[in-house]
């Protein structure tokens, strides 16, 4: 989806606008460098500053935030340091939630993408549009709709109880499942689109060849189709996993207080008087590092698959 536009087109000459290239690129470069890159670097610096009460920082170098994040020194700070689990648990939970959401997206998204890619061209665009539209609908509203639907007194429970299938409502809201469902719902199109693109390029002669060699269709799926479209699957997984990891709305609205994720942890550090900006910056740095590692592997994978031909 994103990769194609950064690559060489192969067919271009010297280019008419070569002389003014820097002027053409400057507005975007400067805007993003000043208002995105610099803030992120500043955030990295903030994570090494001292906390000021009432939110804000004192410009004194300190590793207190990282210490607070990783080490537990007891209630009075005088015990021998041990590994601090409080925050790592939140990160581990976020990874699990994002992982389950990714898996859910894959289980539903792969068959959907495959199904769309094997439709006749006339209905294919319609299907793609249907899958994409929800992504462009306000995320807050989508999460809110999900909350409304699965509440204890929401339509699902009300209907099931009205028709006598249930006596007491199924507890869906404020559970891990609700968060996973919310994340799945938020980022599903990110899974479908790259897989669709990969399956669309897949040569079905390979499937025929496999069938001629007495492979049944599930073996063909496992040994021929999946390895061939793997780059699309990996791209989809990363595109779902990364935003799920730092998601704020789904855990906030659907998860309740027990299902704290990274997004809420960070947000809390910047709200009100009890905030701790350097610590918030540290939490954000840890998240950013995790994401950049994922993106790096993704980029390497993409580079490998482009070099491999196609």
């Amino acid at each position: 989806m994103a990769g194609a536009t950064g690559q060489d087109t192969g067919q271009e000459g010297p280019g008419v606008y070569a002389e003014v290239r820097n002027w053409l690129l400057a507005p975007s470069w400067l805007t993003i460098a000043i208002f995105m890159l610099m803030p992120v670097l500043l955030m990295a610096i903030y994570s090494f500053l001292t906390k000021e009460f009432r939110g804000g920082v004192i410009w004194d170098f300190s590793v207190a935030s990282y210490d607070q994040f990783f080490l537990d020194r007891g209630l009075f700070g005088d015990e021998p340091p041990q590994l601090q689990w409080a925050y790592l648990t939140i990160y581990a939970r976020s990874i699990t939630q994002a992982g389950v959401a990714t898996l859910l997206c894959l289980v539903i998204g792969f068959p959907t993408a495959y199904f769309i890619a094997t439709r006749p061209a006339s209905t294919r665009t319609g299907w793609l549009l249907l899958v994409t539209i929800p992504y462009w609908v306000n995320l807050l509203i989508r999460t809110l709709s999900m909350k409304f639907l699965i509440r204890d007194t929401g339509p699902i429970n009300e209907w099931l109880m009205a028709y006598g299938f249930l006596d007491t409502p199924i507890k869906m809201i404020n559970t891990d499942f609700a968060v996973q469902l919310g994340l799945f719902y938020s980022y599903l199109p990110f899974m479908v689109l790259p897989i669709y693109a990969a399956v669309e390029r897949y040569d079905f002669a390979l499937t025929e060849a496999a069938a001629d060699l007495y492979s049944d269709r599930w073996t063909t799926l496992r040994l021929v189709l999946l390895p061939t479209v793997a780059p699309g699957v990996i791209a989809g997984c990363i595109l779902v996993f990364v935003p799920s990891l730092g998601a704020f709305l789904a855990p906030d609205l659907l998860g309740g207080a027990k299902n704290f994720m990274i997004g809420s942890l960070i947000e809390e550090q910047f709200k009100g008087q009890s905030g701790n900006w350097p610590f918030g910056a540290t939490c954000a740095m840890v998240l950013l590092t995790m994401v950049l590692v994922a993106v790096f592997f993704y980029a390497r994978q993409q580079a490998k698959s482009t070099r491999a031909g196609s």
């Binding site: 003014v20 820097n22 690129l25 470069w29 992120v40 990891l245 730092g246 704020f248 998240l287 994401v291």
Partner: peptide
């Protein structure tokens, strides 16, 4: 600037900069 100025060495980096807002998690931004 990216596509009509001939091949140039900084293109991948330039593309990375332009798509940076897509890669950094929203909460971090």
């Amino acid at each position: 600037g990216m596509l009509r100025t001939g091949a140039f060495r900084g293109r991948p980096l330039s593309f990375a900069l332009i798509s940076l807002p897509l890669m950094v998690p929203e909460i971090v931004t």
